[in-house]
Amino acid sequence: MNDVTVHIALFLAVSAAIVLCGAFYSEPDDQKAFKLLPKRFLWFVGGCLILLAVVLLIEHTVASVS
């Protein structure tokens, strides 16, 4: 596996743990918590992608050192 694939796999693994614990914390009922998982996971990954885009944009504009 190349480096990017490993990073993406690790990110998805840690995202799953974060989202699962977050869902369990916010919803006491197991069934409801499981139903919430896909939506919460997409929100989390989507939010991280937006953050990534912002960081890359800043890196190539105001924080560029080249």
Partner: peptide, 27 residues
């Protein structure tokens, strides 16, 4: 190679356990 990622994962496991303990406490 992945020492930093390993550190973060180990630390995160503990921090997420706090979230789970809050759930245990509230319930």
């Amino acid at each position: 190679e992945y020492a930093d990622a390993g550190l973060v994962f180990g630390c995160l496991a503990g921090l997420l356990n706090i979230l789970c303990l809050l759930d245990v406490h509230a319930f």
